[in-house]
Design a protein around this nucleic acid. Structure first.
Lengths: 217, 217
DNA sequence: CATTGTGCTTGATGGGAGTCAAGCGGAATA
DNA sequence: TATTCCGCTTGACTCCCATCAAGCACAATG
């Protein structure tokens, strides 16, 4: 990234604390004062929003190497809940110190801006998915995305364990858990994948890609 | 734009050029190199993304005082199209100069980060809408959002002209244009509003809020 | 003024996903 | 090992929205 030693040490010094979060525990709640963003070292999270009328929706799943909490910057409070879906380990990055250092270290500033923008783009693709895809297309897109992120972290792209329930997948994709379950069964009947509980093995990724590509004919 | 006078003047110094964009013209296309973000002085825009099957989905509507182009930062290219829905006038803000100045002027840096984060939060609320609301609830939320933005710019909150077609509204809300039209008619039958072509008069905003569930405003 | 086109409204019909319900199965606990 | 619970699967039925289709309204053009 074009950093000299001093800059590199400063960035390392940003990490105030490592924090362990047990399965089903919250890293932060909606409404909590925003003080830091979090880099996931180990583990898996979901973020969700609970509205007053009881609507609850998962807004994202985050795995090791990804960043949590960027939405809190806007109003100095977290706007969603972050819940560990397995025992996890995060780096807490105090935001005021990150802003300070960003003013001194240009590559850090640039990288941070790109992170924020990438989050905007990611959410746009979810909007596309929710706005124009059918149930099976949504699930196919979800699995391919998960597969790609697993692979980029050195895990198998074709075989992995889901950390979230059918209900959480459905909430994220704008579907009911029964619909998610039916789509899994259909994919298995068609030989696109095998599914045993949370264990997934993708047999025909190209067929899944075709499903997503042919969205909304 | 949520900036105080001092901050606003600093941003004004950044403005390289004013640019006029006629109705139906593009401000930028998906794939264009990303060089600047744009502040809308006068006018109204939509952003959309072209899907592989040739149809496009509207990802947002932007009015005077709002910012266009934040998604381009991520990959140094614009990822969506920005199209003027009426004759418009924008300020071009070269992004490298904005980054430079942000390193020197802390309030500008802070404000810019908040802008990015606000865009993330805005998109999350659209995800909620697309994922868990029914057609009439979506349209009600859309109208209330538009109404609130009109009001915050000094226009009437209860009476305004839509700049976009039913099809564009539907694309944004994940609905077909016929469904949007039917929802308008139903609202009118129920006395919640009057609609004549693109002219909207909201008669009972509380009823619309009740529909949405009081969570979105 | 007539003509054309585009956007909008409305009706009829069908399909995909939601809802309700029953039962299965693996995992955790005692 | 037995019990309980929670998540998952599957079936039957319902309903909301998409689709297909016809016609209207208004603006632009000749």
């Amino acid at each position: 990234m074009g950093l000299d030693n001093h800059e590199f040490e400063q960035i390392e010094g940003l990490i105030a604390a490592r924090k362990r979060v047990k399965r089903q525990q919250h890293l932060y709640h909606a409404g909590d004062p925003f003080e830091a963003i979090y880099a996931i070292r180990i583990g898996f999270f979901k973020t969700d929003i609970l509205t007053e009328d009881g609507r609850d929706q998962v807004t994202g799943f985050q795995m090791a190497g990804e960043i949590l909490g960027l939405d809190g910057i806007s109003i100095d409070r977290h706007v969603c809940n972050a819940v560990a879906l397995e025992d996890s380990d995060v780096c807490m990055i105090p935001f005021d110190r990150l802003e300070d250092l960003s003013r001194k270290v240009e590559p850090l500033q640039r990288q941070f801006n790109k992170f924020m923008s990438r989050e905007i783009v990611r959410e746009q693709s979810i909007m596309m998915l929710l706005g124009s895809m059918r149930a099976e297309e949504r699930l196919a897109a979800f699995l391919l995305n998960l597969s790609q992120r697993m692979q980029s972290r050195g895990y198998s792209a074709s075989e992995f364990n889901l950390r979230m329930t059918r209900e959480e997948i459905g909430s994220y994709l704008g579907l009911k858990l029964e619909t998610v379950s039916r789509a899994f069964s259909k994919f298995q009947d068609e030989g696109l994948l095998t599914v045993h509980q949370k264990h997934i093995q993708i047999l025909d990724p190209d067929a899944l890609r075709t499903l997503v590509g042919r969205a909304h004919v």
